[in-house]
Design a protein around this nucleic acid. Sequence first.
DNA 1: CTTCCATGCAAGTAATTACTTACATCCTAG
DNA 2: CTAGGATGTAAGTAATTACTTGCATGGAAG
Lengths: 195, 195
Amino acid sequence: MFLTTKGTAQRIIEAALQLISEKGYTAATTKTIAELAGVNEVTLFRHFGNKRGLLKAIIEQFSYYPLLQQEINQNVTWELEKDLLNFSLKHFHFLMSIKDFVMIGFKESIQFPEISEEIANIPLLIKKELIHYFQEMHQQGKIREVDFEAAALSLIALNFGHFMSRARLGTIVSDLPTEELLQTSVAIFSRGLVS
Amino acid sequence: MFLTTKGTAQRIIEAALQLISEKGYTAATTKTIAELAGVNEVTLFRHFGNKRGLLKAIIEQFSYYPLLQQEINQNVTWELEKDLLNFSLKHFHFLMSIKDFVMIGFKESIQFPEISEEIANIPLLIKKELIHYFQEMHQQGKIREVDFEAAALSLIALNFGHFMSRARLGTIVSDLPTEELLQTSVAIFSRGLVS
DNA sequence: CTTCCATGCAAGTAATTACTTACATCCTAG
DNA sequence: CTAGGATGTAAGTAATTACTTGCATGGAAG
């Protein structure tokens, strides 16, 4: 009973996540969502009341998603390139793992500002952590003095750009393996920071 | 007669561009588009046949948009940081100028693959130019040997990331002036490339 | 065995949406 | 002045959409 309930609701949420991220909120109809979830359309309304309730459930579910933030400070070696590559790989794969949600965030940011805030939290938290890291590295004399906020934002933009390119355009732009791309990317960036 | 015709169609296209980029293709109704254009809904259908025809007109209009590509090779000074900053500023403002179209491209890429192709052309062309530039700079002994494709993609991702952040999240993530941000961004990147 | 509870199924409803048709009006070019 | 093309207005239509209601079913817990 408990398992089935959770299973059904979860399947609906995942179907909605996929369809809304592909087609957008309006174009993803409750009928197609129910179909993809393998569930009767009425069941959807019984669980979430209305279509917006479904979106709300998606946002809620995401807000409990284990954030990247805590992981960043782990495995810090205070070797710039090594740390930044480690971070960038994590950042990239984190974005990929919540790809559907990110896409919804960008698609519906105007119609549903709540999602925008949730999405904007990611770079904000990461920015904070990165600035700390850069400041500490600077005090250790390992990187030169730059605007650390701008530097943090740049690394985030770099990873995000790679993510968007891969997530939406696939290999149209380039078929370089992600790891290779990120490695060169980080190599250049960290070399630009060292003293 | 000619002026009025072109004026009406153009106003409809611009209204559609704005609304579709904000709400997505399905949520932007022909009624609201006509209203925003200050035109009767029937006029819209008389000009473009159906709603898809309107989208097609948008794509067509964009395909004639003066591409950034040609401008890149102009004003090249063969001073790395200066050139890259010049390029990045142009790249950023170019993306901003076609912001609505880029947003449509990312929102409707699955439902309308034609747009994806059009959008993917931008980084592809820029990548080509940047690779040439890097190769030449390398031969001049001004930058070290790296994977030039990965380097080009990284600079593009960097600028695109900054663009997306500003275009969709505004100043939530940071209120640093764009010029300052890009300057630091490029300073780090070009320093990472010099021999 | 029975009693819920989640779900399926059938049918329907009010609103909206893309699109059409027919007719009136206006502006401009010849 | 007039004829034609572009636009507005009014009305309507078929399809779709979010959402509801009532009833049947099936499986698990007591």
